[in-house]
């Protein structure tokens, strides 16, 4: 009889520990963990829900609705591959609410540095890419005095 008591005690401990482990584990592991792999499947939705700042090239028609001139000029110029937001900055908010949110444009005084980001002569840039030596190419003049930024060829 005494032996049976020992065995029951061991069995009871075993059951309590196992059930306790399963309960704690159930609380600690997030609900979607392991659904798709060794990670929380809901994390994918968290990342997906991040806000979009750049309207992107998919908004081409939306841009053209108000800015038909620049969009048309750019389409046939050497800047045709350059997307609006490359120079004007993130405009997702502007596309959603064109009246109250206005995207930036470079000030006239900063023009040379702004255009120079791409076009200042630099030995590291690929050969054939149009570059100018800013210190000898009409120093002091804003680029837009001669070039239309949407149709840069003179």
């Amino acid at each position: 009889m005494k032996d049976l008591d020992h065995l029951l005690r061991v069995a009871a401990t075993f059951v309590v520990v196992t059930v306790g482990f399963l309960v704690v584990r159930g609380f600690l592991i997030p609900p979607t963990f392991g659904k798709l792999g060794h990670y929380r499947a809901a994390a994918v939705d968290d990342v997906k829900a991040m806000p979009v700042r750049y309207a992107g090239r998919a908004a081409r028609d939306a841009c053209a609705r108000c800015h038909a001139g620049p969009v048309r000029d750019r389409a046939s110029s050497s800047h045709r591959g350059v997307w609006c937001e490359t120079c004007h900055g993130a405009a997702g908010a502007h596309a959603a609410d064109p009246k109250s949110v206005k995207p930036g444009r470079p000030a006239k005084g900063e023009m040379r540095a702004f255009c120079g980001r791409c076009h200042a002569s630099n030995i590291t840039r690929p050969r054939g890419f149009p570059q100018v030596n800013l210190s000898v190419h009409n120093p002091g003049a804003a680029c837009t005095e001669c070039h239309d930024s949407h149709k840069p060829k003179l």
Binding site: V52, G56, H79, W83
Partner: peptide, 10 residues
């Protein structure tokens, strides 16, 4: 949409 870096690459 494209990734932001792809959108702005001139």
């Amino acid at each position: 949409l494209n990734p932001a870096c792809v959108e702005v690459c001139p």
